[in-house]
Amino acid sequence: MSRLTRFVKYTEKVVRNSMKRLLVLLLMVVLGVSVSAKVLFQDTFDEETDDWKLGMTLEVYEGCLNNDTLGLSLDAELLGEEFENCVIAGTFQINEWGKNGALRILFRYNSLFESYWLSFWPTGIGIHRFTGTWESGTLLGSNDSPAFGALGTHTFKIELNDFTFKVFVDGKEVLKVSDSEKEFPVGGLLLRFDDVALSFDEISVDSL
């Protein structure tokens, strides 16, 4: 094989490899774009918008959604949005628990008692499924730890993958449950302040 032939073959290999690399790179970019999470909704509560329907003592000021009143059940309903598989995440600060205190994050919300409830209590967290009435509530799973409901700031994340729900609190996975009944594949989002003084700094919903 002459030097010239070897040079040509080498050049062809380099070109072929470069093309391959380019193709792989392009493929990675395409895949990367398609698999990276897409922001479906986000609110940092810098100002009160019409995105939410707020209960009477819920207020947006100083960059937070605030409730300072104990003894009431107050809802912040996200209007006109529905989500399937997604990641709901946020940061909140618990200032005071009332006697019956609970923070609820109702996901795949169709109505108050047609949805899943992630609840934070002073003693831990749990996920319920409601199918029409209060009595229909079924506890899908819970994790008792006062750390989750301790006064102060917490982050949370719920990954909704079909009917398996993973909950992360303060960066750690703390609960994983599945709904064998596969009741609600889609629905909105509602934050419920039950007898708790609390402020939300931010909340977001990303695609899974």
């Binding site: 100002e47 009160e48 707020l54 209960g55 009477m56 207020e59 947006v60 000021y61």
Partner: peptide, 17 residues
């Protein structure tokens, strides 16, 4: 009106700002 608004839905909510 501020509070009744959200209960009766007959009146737009007055925002804090």
């Amino acid at each position: 009106e501020f509070s009744a608004a959200s209960m009766t839905e007959q009146y737009p909510r007055i925002k804090t700002t």
